[in-house]
Structures are given as structure tokens and as C-alpha cells.
């Protein structure tokens, strides 16, 4: 054995180790109320509580995977240092006289700005003024809006693609926004509601899926899964065969051949054959969020209520139920 092959990676790790960083492995981030809780995927135990003001909604991961940006109460953006497990900065998108609420949040590649979908209002002489809904780019340090584009209808969710050159805005319709020019521009509109699709795209698992956003929707007869490839911007629409399984969210298995969906039941989906494989009721009750370990062996469901259940992906037997500090919105995975 050549010592260099053993030692060099170790030395490299030691050099990196000089700065604090999270240990290697899966970490799950439970998005709660007043708190984000960190679960170690090796032991499935809560290893840190990160106090965060407000009801956590959207998150996005910085390109260097050192910071998780966490939005709460639809107007605060907290920067969480993942090595220290604490909030190091907070920005507020309200200001300049407008009361704003933000639905959908994605980081821009510059590391300094992000995109949000906003609805807004303000009072003038005792009268309510309602702003036009917009998708806007704003500064992460100040929360100030840099540029924006009006959208015909309020938007529920954003997905960034093609290194930030395209932003997809999901709502009643799907708007494709081009960010490359001086102004943001809607370059395409695809109907969603008018096509009889009922969609609640709050959970997309883009970074958990390794760069693919996965969102499910319903027609009157079936469930579909919409996949957005972040790299190419390609959108794939899979309509599943059979009676629809009811789910809030869908996450891809690491091999991308299967997917897991959750609401009252945890359901395994065969993406290639577009069929349901099996389904078990979640004993603790409805969950909003689902995730899967990076080796594909464990499935996690959480949020809605205050439980997190770990399942064996093979047997679909629950391995563990964690009682979380608060109810939750979602469970996200970052692998270090």
C-alpha cells in the first residue's frame, strides 16, 4: 500500500478541519416554528436547535454549502451558518413603506441576492393600497429590492435553473422569467390551472434531489409529478397511472428511479413505470415533508404536526419517531 494514498486525503481533511464545519454525512433540517432543528442522519437524533424568529417556510442552500438561507413569517430571511448552527444575519423584505409577503425563494448565483415572489400592500391616508404581485430580486444583506417584474397572478413558488439565468414561477400558471437582461422578463407562460392541474408546489427538494425540483399535482383523475432539472431547465411531467395517492410533497430516491410521496400515507413511486409501488399510513398522522437518506436506505417524514418518523425504505417499517419541539413545515437534507 502506498502511504500517500492514505495520507493525502487525511491531510486534506485536516487542512479543511481548521475551520469549523459540519461532520461528513447526512443532516436533516426540520423547519419549525421559532426553531430549525438539526437531525444527524447516522444516529437519527436531534443534534442542534437553531432558534429562528418566526414560522419557517422556504429555504435555499448557498453554492458553497456553508449557509442555509431560511425565510420565515413570509418576510424575514435568516442566514444560518451550518458549521455553527446559528443565525448570523437576518434581513427583512418589508421596508420602504410596503408591507410585503414573500412566497417562493431562491438564491441567485452571485451569493449576494435572491429572488422572491411578493405580494404587497400599504396604507395611504387610511386607505389600503394593494401592490401588483411581482417576482423580484433583492439584496440578501438589506432585503432591499433590486429589480422586479410584475406577474399576472400571485406566485406560490420559485425554482431557479440554468445557473440562475431562468427562474420558474409556479402559481395559477407557470411563468418562465429570463434574468439575463437588465430587466427581469417573462418569456413564456404555460397554463396550470386551466389545464385542470391542481398544484401546491411549496415543497420541491431541489438541493436534496441533487439539482432537480420535484413537485406533485393532481388532475381530476390522476397524480402527476413535475420535475425541473436545475442545470438544463428542462421540465418533465410524469402522469402516474392508477388512482391517485394523496400527497403534499414528493422527493426523489438517490437513484432517481423511485420517488417517495407523503401526506396521510407514505407512498413509494416507480418513476420509470409511472406507477405506485406501495403505500403505508403514517401512524403519527398527516405529514407535509418527506426526505430520503443519501444511501436511499431510510425515508423520513415530518412536519404538519410535531413528529418526525424514520422508515426503513426496504420494509417501510418505522424505525424511530422523534418528537420535535414544534409543528413543522418541511424536512430538508444536506449531505456534507
Amino acid at each position: 500500500m502506498r502511504w500517500a494514498t492514505v495520507l493525502l486525503p487525511a491531510l486534506a481533511a485536516a487542512a479543511l478541519g481548521a475551520a469549523p464545519r459540519a461532520d461528513a454525512g447526512d443532516r436533516y433540517y426540520y423547519l419549525g416554528y421559532g426553531v430549525v432543528q438539526v437531525i444527524d442522519g447516522a444516529t437519527d437524533t436531534i443534534v442542534a436547535d437553531i432558534p429562528v424568529k418566526g414560522a419557517v417556510r422556504n429555504v435555499d442552500l448557498s453554492a458553497d454549502r456553508k449557509y442555509l438561507y431560511v425565510t420565515s413569517n413570509r418576510h424575514l430571511v435568516h442566514k444560518v451558518d451550518l458549521a455553527q448552527n446559528r443565525v448570523v444575519a437576518t434581513a427583512d423584505v418589508k421596508g420602504d413603506g410596503w408591507d410585503r409577503v414573500m412566497y417562493g425563494f431562491v438564491l441567485a448565483p452571485d451569493g449576494k441576492t435572491a429572488y422572491g415572489a411578493f405580494m404587497s400592500r400599504r396604507a395611504e391616508n387610511g386607505e389600503a393600497i394593494v401592490g401588483r404581485p411581482v417576482v423580484a430580486q433583492f439584496a440578501l444583506d438589506t432585503g432591499r429590492i433590486v429589480r422586479s417584474v410584475e406577474v399576472p397572478w400571485g406566485v406560490a413558488h420559485l425554482v431557479g435553473a440554468r445557473e440562475g439565468r431562468t427562474i420558474y414561477a409556479f402559481g395559477q400558471d407557470l411563468y418562465t422569467i429570463d434574468t439575463t437582461g437588465p430587466d427581469l422578463r417573462i418569456v413564456a407562460t404555460q397554463p396550470i390551472l386551466d389545464k385542470g392541474m391542481n398544484m401546491l408546489p411549496f415543497w420541491d427538494y431541489t438541493f436534496d434531489n441533487g439539482g432537480v425540483a420535484s413537485m406533485n399535482y393532481y388532475t381530476a383523475t390522476a397524480m402527476g409529478v413535475m420535475l425541473v432539472d436545475q442545470k438544463t431547465g428542462a421540465i418533465e411531467d410524469l402522469v402516474l397511472k392508477g388512482d391517485p395517492a394523496m400527497a403534499y410533497s414528493v422527493v426523489l430516491a438517490p437513484d432517481r428511479k423511485r420517488a417517495w410521496a407523503v401526506m396521510d400515507d407514505l407512498t413509494e413511486i416507480d418513476l420509470a413505470r409511472k406507477t405506485y409501488v406501495r403505500s403505508v399510513p403514517v401512524a403519527e398522522g398527516t405529514c407535509y415533508g418527506v426526505n430520503v437518506s443519501s444511501d436511499g436506505r431510510k425515508v423520513y417524514v415530518a412536519g404538519g404536526g410535531s413528529t418526525l418518523t424514520v422508515y426503513d425504505a426496504k420494509t417501510l417499517k418505522p424505525l424511530k419517531v422523534l418528537q420535535m419541539a414544534s409543528d413543522g413545515m418541511d424536512l430538508r437534507r444536506i449531505s456534507f
Binding site: G32, G34, V35, G305, S306, D327
Partner: peptide, 8 residues
């Protein structure tokens, strides 16, 4: 959310 973080 401060008043009632855990409904159950």
C-alpha cells in the same frame, strides 16, 4: 407561531 408553536 410564538403563542402556539405546537398545536397538539
Amino acid at each position: 407561531d410564538v403563542q402556539c408553536p405546537n398545536v397538539a
